[in-house]
Amino acid sequence: MNSRACLAGAAILLVAMPAVARDSLGVYDSWGAFRDPAVPRCYAIAKAQPSKARRDAQPFAAIGYWPTRGVRGQVSFSLSRSAAPAPAPVLRIGNARFDLKGSGRQAWASDKSVDAAIVAAMRAGATMSVSAWDTRGNRFTDRYRLEGAATAMDAATVGCARLGR
């Protein structure tokens, strides 16, 4: 697994951990922003919209910032089911389509330029969805509202501005 994949996996695990030593930076519609000065890191996060489809776990999207590592706006997803190795999960925001990398229930952008394109699309979009095929051969989709996403990402950016110094 490459370093980007390890960092994305670590982001998912860190975000999923109990809220010990985390500061809330605010809740903006369906998105929240948090800071963890002990790591240091900040992130914007949202749960997927409710669904009647089978879910093995609660899906969520996160945009992470690790100022001491020079990482800004790293996009990652925790999927509602374990995805099959192929085809890759797909993120759709409006008319934009992004092929994601992934393993099991985790998915992430392939590189920094894709992270930046996704963040820009999120700022302009109203909804996004991540679709994949599960390990049983069934297609599934996790859907998100984007109201508040831009403000939560801005709060995370500002919240981490001084942590990297």
Rank of each mutant, 00 (worst) to 15 (best):
L7C: 02
L91C: 10
R162A: 15
C160V: 07
C6H: 05
V39I: 15
N95D: 14
P67T: 02
S113F: 07
K101Y: 05
A149Q: 13
A38G: 10
G73D: 06
A156N: 03
S129Q: 11
S110W: 02
I45Y: 06
M122T: 11
N138W: 07
I93M: 02
F77N: 01
A109F: 08
G73R: 11
A33W: 09
A120F: 01
Y28Q: 09
M1R: 04
A124H: 09
D142A: 09
A19W: 04
A16E: 14
F98R: 07
W66Q: 05
Q49E: 15
T157K: 08
Q74D: 05
D29M: 08
R72D: 03
Q74I: 08
V90D: 00
R35K: 13
L13I: 07
L25I: 12
R165D: 12
T141R: 14
A149N: 09
G104F: 09
A8P: 04
R35E: 14
A152M: 07
V158Q: 14
S129D: 05
F60N: 04
D56S: 13
G125P: 11
L146E: 11
A5V: 01
F140Q: 06
G73L: 02
T135D: 09
S76L: 13
K52A: 12
A117E: 06
R136I: 01
G148E: 10
P89V: 09
T127E: 07
Y43N: 01
R22V: 15
